[in-house]
Simulated assay, not measured.
Amino acid sequence: MGQSTPWVVGLTGGIGSGKTAAARCFSELGVHVVDADQAARWVVEPGQPALAEIVRRFGSEILQPDGTLNRAALRQRIFQEAEQRRWLESVLHPRIQITIDEHLAQAQSPYAILVSPLLIESGQYRQTQRVLVVDVPESVQIARTVARDQVDEAQVQAILKAQLSRTERLRQAHDVLLNEHSPEHLAQEVKRLHEFYLGLTGGQP
C-alpha cells in the first residue's frame, strides 16, 4: 500500500509567541515541517528568477556587495509606493506558493506542518486542513520580542498593531497551543497534540 498524501496543519501565531519553538518540537517527533518564511527567502536567493526580475525593476543598488538581496533597501522602496509593493507580491507570492507546495509534497509523515506568521492574512490557511495557533498573552509577546530582537517596546507594539489581532487569530483556530510556561511544558503540549493528530484522518476527527 502506497503512502497516502499527508494532510496539513497550518501553524501560526503572533510575534514572540513561539511558533519556531513549537515547530521544532513537532519536527523532533518526526513531523515534516515547511516554513513559509524560509520559502520566501529561497525564492530570492542568487540565481533565482525572482531575484533577477527584482534587479531588472529596481536596479543593482537593491543588491548587497555579495549579490544577495538587500532587504532593507527593497523594503524602503516598496514601503513608499503601494504599486511597487503589489508588483513585488505578484512576482513573489506565486513562486513562494510553488516552493511551499513542493516541500509539502516531500512529506513522509502522516501529516505535515506549514509554519506561517501570515497563515490567515495571506490565505495560506486554505491549503491546510486544520489551523493551530500558538498563543501567549500580549505582555509575554512584548517581553520575549524585546529580549530576542533587542528592539524597544514601541516597535513591538507597532508590529502587534499591524498583525492580525489575537482575538481574530483565535477565532480561526481549530487548536490552540498555550505557550506561556517552560519549553518542557510546550514540548509536552506538542506531544499531546501530535498523538491527537495521528488519530485523525485528513485532519478530521
Rank of each mutant, 00 (worst) to 15 (best):
residue 173 A to D: 06
residue 152 D to E: 08
residue 187 A to T: 08
residue 15 I to P: 00
residue 137 P to R: 12
residue 124 Q to T: 00
residue 62 I to K: 01
residue 142 I to R: 11
residue 99 T to D: 10
residue 163 Q to M: 05
residue 41 R to Y: 05
residue 193 L to H: 11
residue 2 G to V: 12
residue 188 Q to H: 13
residue 93 H to T: 08
residue 131 V to H: 01
residue 120 I to Y: 04
residue 27 S to R: 13
residue 69 L to S: 10
residue 121 E to C: 06
residue 168 E to M: 04
residue 176 V to L: 06
residue 205 P to M: 03
residue 98 I to F: 02
residue 148 R to S: 07
residue 173 A to P: 08
residue 23 A to G: 13
residue 8 V to I: 15
residue 102 E to K: 13
residue 198 L to F: 10
residue 147 A to G: 12
residue 111 Y to S: 10
residue 95 R to K: 14
residue 196 F to R: 13
residue 192 R to F: 05
residue 62 I to G: 00
residue 23 A to C: 04
residue 48 Q to F: 01
residue 51 L to I: 11
residue 37 D to T: 09
residue 122 S to F: 05
residue 90 S to V: 10
residue 190 V to F: 03
residue 142 I to N: 07
residue 141 Q to R: 13
residue 105 A to N: 10
residue 88 L to W: 03
residue 67 G to V: 10
residue 4 S to P: 14
residue 99 T to F: 05
residue 201 T to F: 01
residue 14 G to R: 06
residue 186 L to V: 13
residue 185 H to R: 07
residue 119 L to H: 01
residue 7 W to M: 04
residue 30 G to M: 10
residue 91 V to W: 04
residue 145 T to R: 00
residue 198 L to V: 11
residue 24 R to K: 12
residue 111 Y to I: 10
residue 126 R to D: 09
residue 160 L to G: 04
residue 158 A to Q: 12
residue 179 N to Y: 01
residue 200 L to W: 12
residue 200 L to E: 11
residue 189 E to G: 14
residue 141 Q to N: 14
residue 67 G to C: 03
residue 51 L to M: 07
residue 161 K to T: 13
residue 118 L to K: 04
residue 4 S to H: 09
residue 72 A to S: 13
residue 117 P to K: 07
residue 60 S to H: 08
residue 191 K to S: 15
residue 124 Q to V: 00
residue 163 Q to S: 02
residue 160 L to I: 15
residue 28 E to A: 15
residue 147 A to R: 14
residue 72 A to F: 00
residue 109 S to C: 02
residue 5 T to N: 08
residue 186 L to M: 09
residue 28 E to I: 00
residue 17 S to C: 14
residue 84 Q to L: 12
residue 52 A to M: 03
residue 39 A to Q: 12
residue 205 P to Q: 08
residue 15 I to Y: 00
residue 109 S to W: 01
residue 117 P to G: 11
residue 80 Q to T: 13
residue 61 E to R: 12
residue 26 F to P: 05
residue 99 T to I: 00
residue 127 Q to W: 02
residue 195 E to T: 15
residue 150 Q to M: 01
residue 27 S to W: 02
residue 52 A to H: 07
residue 131 V to N: 01
residue 139 S to C: 09
residue 132 L to G: 08
residue 119 L to Y: 05
residue 121 E to H: 04
residue 163 Q to W: 04
residue 145 T to M: 02
residue 3 Q to R: 11
residue 35 D to A: 11
residue 141 Q to Y: 05
residue 165 S to N: 12
residue 3 Q to C: 03
residue 12 T to R: 03
residue 30 G to K: 06
residue 117 P to T: 11
residue 191 K to P: 00
residue 67 G to Q: 02
residue 76 Q to V: 03
residue 8 V to W: 05
residue 170 L to P: 07
residue 136 V to L: 10
residue 61 E to W: 00
